[in-house]
Nucleic acid binder design. Structure first.
Lengths: 335, 335
DNA sequence: CTGTTAGCGCGTTCAC
DNA sequence: GTGAACGCGCTAACAG
């Protein structure tokens, strides 16, 4: 393994000069001719700096710790793409960790990530609405910050006391509801996602309240996992009552797709017999038939902002930026 | 920032003892009572080991470098989920890098990743069929191995001289072709993906040759990007000739979906006027209508095997395991 | 402008 | 069973 001092030797200069040839240095300068000799030697020897040593010796950490529920879920992988863009923006690399929905596992992962001494931590995903869970998560993040000096940002709701990219689920869901009210739908049901999931609840609430305010009548919300199968199951439950609502709102696209499948299996046609709307506007789902009415979120952009916020957070106060969604009416809710 | 020697001091022991209390040590043992005192002190002080220091001091590297084309693409994010599982299997963390399709960018990323001194590197994704490109990539990987001592594995074709999880695209595509021949389709077209992409070419070739062997007649293959829009465009090109083939094979699901959209837009019905098949069996696409005939790949499993292979590669010879796909006939190719 | 030296936090010899 | 001392590769003071 070739080290910087090998390079220095090969170039006939001191270790310090070699180091400066690469990173420059506050005030010290290196004669261009020497600098070239060092670089050339490095190339010849195939030298690559040792990141661990650099970090230990006092370089700024350059890694972005990214914590998601499940990287295979398109919602998270799109955000991850944005986070990566944000990281390359300052020459950082991203380290990835998945946790599932469990708060315990999130806390566990956050504590483990402390060893990396990352520059920033980005935590993505809806939280459980449990006072105790939230409190523990808050503490874990606070510890993380004070302990590693890293910046922290959360993508979700502003309830963690850290910088957050707050998705305005409630307002966007309400917008969606109003757009649908305008089409004349009134009897509706909601596939409300996991019980006690903050994001799911916000979307569900925003939609329901706006619908009710518009004079619509609601079915009892049906809970289910935040997945295709969860949506499928929830829709099956909802339809099993025999009474088909005019409109069903699933709190995310993946569930909506499962719901449409469940409807199809029972011979309930979308959008003729029932209309279905989702949330997120997942790119991969853009072409399902009937095309899905949903709320568009710029997921990559959200990921990139999160990195930026986390970076800023290192020096200033926690900030929260609210990002909205835009309603996209498509075939699945055609009158 | 609390260090191990702080913990040692707080526990009233030496640095060495504190270290051994955590990691044990070959022969040296530490009295349980002392060990507890150290652990307790660590907990009190909120100590977290410094991974960089550990690595520098000679610990085994614990990171898995994962290189993909695009993490937002479900093909890669599913494999990434598997890689992550494989990494947690040995207490490792994964660092993520995206490259797009360009070989230059892949090489660039691989060289940058050397700084991390990861335990293993997993390179995922089809390659460009360019002798020079392949050669350079081969060298980059070889250098990577000899310089970092890391294990390397590739997911794709066994053409890089490293351990690889070789997806038998050609055979699986041929299986698909035969299954479709059995349904009586003969006039077919292929949306062949990016020009010079090895994986795309293998799938295209396997399918085409099996079809021709079965007496079918082929249209000129149409190239296009490995994306929804690429499939859309390619299908539009293919249809613009006016003559609609009975069957169109897109070299991956994402393209197939774009192709179906293009057909729909022109009033060409699937599967009534044309049948469409894809490849990969992307979970998120499982519910599109008509449901997509495709080749199922266990992507997560593939990712996990890749990590295992890379780990083994550290000590033994490069191995390659071939994984097959299984044909899944669905609605999009119904007779 | 360049070279010398002292750590960064930790694992690991070696003595005790 | 325990502790003292060295070194991993590098950057950042310090001299010259």
């Amino acid at each position: 393994m070739v080290t910087l001092s090998d390079v220095a030797k090969a170039a006939g200069v001191s270790l310090a000069t070699a180091s400066r040839a690469f990173n420059g240095s506050k005030d010290r300068h290196v004669r261009p001719e020497l600098r070239d000799r060092v670089i050339e030697a490095a190339r010849r020897l195939n030298y690559a700096p040792n990141a661990a040593a650099q970090q230990l010796a006092g370089g700024e950490p350059r890694s972005v710790a990214l914590v998601v529920h499940n990287i295979a879920d398109p919602y998270f992988s799109s955000i991850a793409a944005g986070v990566e863009r944000g990281a390359t923006g300052f020459g950082g690399i991203v380290t990835l960790a998945s946790t599932g929905l469990s708060t315990d596992s999130q806390i566990q992962v956050i504590e483990t990530l402390r060893r990396q001494r990352p520059r920033v931590l980005v935590l993505v995903g809806g939280l459980q609405d449990d006072r105790d869970d939230l409190q523990r998560l808050r503490e874990a993040l606070a510890d993380f910050k004070t302990f590693t000096g890293a910046g922290v940002a959360h993508v979700g709701q502003p309830v963690l006391g850290v910088s957050t990219v707050a998705i305005d689920n409630e307002a966007a869901a309400a917008d969606l509801a109003r757009a649908l009210l305008a089409q004349g739908f009134t009897r509706f049901g909601v596939l409300a996602g996991p019980e006690g999931h903050l994001t799911a609840a916000a979307r569900s609430r925003g939609f329901t309240e706006a619908m009710l305010a518009g004079g619509a009548t609601a079915r009892e919300p049906v809970h289910g996992e935040f997945t295709r199968d969860g949506g499928h199951q929830a829709m099956a439950d909802l339809l099993s009552s025999g009474d088909v609502p005019e409109l069903v709102f699933a709190v995310n696209d993946v569930m909506a797709v499962g719901a449409m499948a469940a409807a199809r299996e029972r011979g309930v046609r979308v959008p003729d017999d029932v209309r279905v709307a989702g949330f997120d506007d997942i790119l991969t789902l853009r072409d399902i038939t009937p095309s899905l009415t949903t709320v568009h979120l710029d997921l990559e952009e959200i990921g990139e902002s999160a990195v930026q916020l986390a970076l800023d957070d290192q020096h200033g106060e926690p900030r929260t930026v609210v990002v909205g969604g835009s309603v996209v009416l498509r075939e699945s809710t055609r009158r």
